[in-house]
Amino acid sequence: MDVLPLGLWLDFLGTFVFAISGALVAVRRGLDIFGILVLSVAAGLAGGMIRDMLLGATPPTALEDPRYLLTALAAGVCVFFGHRLLERLNKPVMVLDALGLGVFAVSGCQKSLLFGLDPLPAILLGVLTAVGGGATRDLLVVEIPRVLREEVYALAATVGATIVVAGTALGLSEVWIAVAGVVAAFGFRVISVWRGWRAPRAPGS
Rank of each mutant, 00 (worst) to 15 (best):
V152W: 03
L70K: 09
A156Y: 06
V159W: 00
L45M: 13
A74Y: 03
V164H: 01
L24E: 04
R201T: 07
D138F: 05
P92Y: 10
L113V: 02
R149I: 03
A75E: 04
E143Q: 15
R28P: 00
A180T: 11
L120G: 00
R201I: 04
G167E: 08
L69W: 07
V41S: 03
V27P: 02
S173C: 11
R88P: 00
S192C: 08
L31F: 15
E151S: 14
F18N: 09
N90C: 03
V164K: 02
G100S: 08
L155A: 14
R137V: 00
R149Q: 15
D32Q: 13
W194G: 04
L96G: 11
F18I: 05
E87C: 05
I144P: 04
T158C: 12
L6S: 10
L24T: 05
G14A: 09
A178T: 03
L86D: 03
R195K: 15
L6V: 09
Q110G: 06
G187P: 03
D65C: 11
I177T: 11
G133A: 12
S112E: 07
S173E: 12
V179G: 06
G132Y: 02
V190A: 12
G22W: 04
W176R: 11
A202S: 07
E87Y: 13
I144N: 10
A122M: 07
V38L: 14
R149A: 11
L120S: 06
Y68K: 06
I144C: 09
L85S: 10
C109P: 01
L85E: 09
G134M: 07
V141K: 11
V147I: 15
I33H: 13
L86C: 07
A169C: 04
V179M: 12
R28D: 08
P5I: 10
A98V: 06
V3T: 13
L31W: 12
R146T: 08
D97A: 13
G167K: 12
A199G: 04
W9N: 10
D32E: 11
P66T: 10
L99D: 04
K111P: 03
F80H: 13
G126T: 02
R146A: 14
F16S: 07
T61W: 09
D65K: 15
V142N: 14
P59D: 08
I33M: 15
K111A: 01
Q110A: 12
C78G: 06
G22F: 08
D2A: 13
L89Q: 10
L117R: 05
L148H: 09
G134N: 04
A178N: 06
G196Q: 07
I177P: 04
V147W: 01
L155C: 07
L37S: 09
T136M: 15
L8M: 13
T129N: 08
V164W: 02
P59W: 11
D65I: 08
F186D: 02
M94W: 10
G187Y: 04
V27R: 15
G187F: 07
L140P: 00
C78R: 01
S173D: 15
I123D: 01
V41H: 06
H83K: 11
P66V: 10
V131K: 01
G48D: 08
L39T: 05
R29W: 09
I50D: 03
D65T: 12
V190S: 09
I191F: 14
V95G: 08
F18K: 06
I36R: 04
F12V: 08
P203R: 14
L24N: 01
R29G: 05
L125C: 10
G167H: 11
F115Y: 15
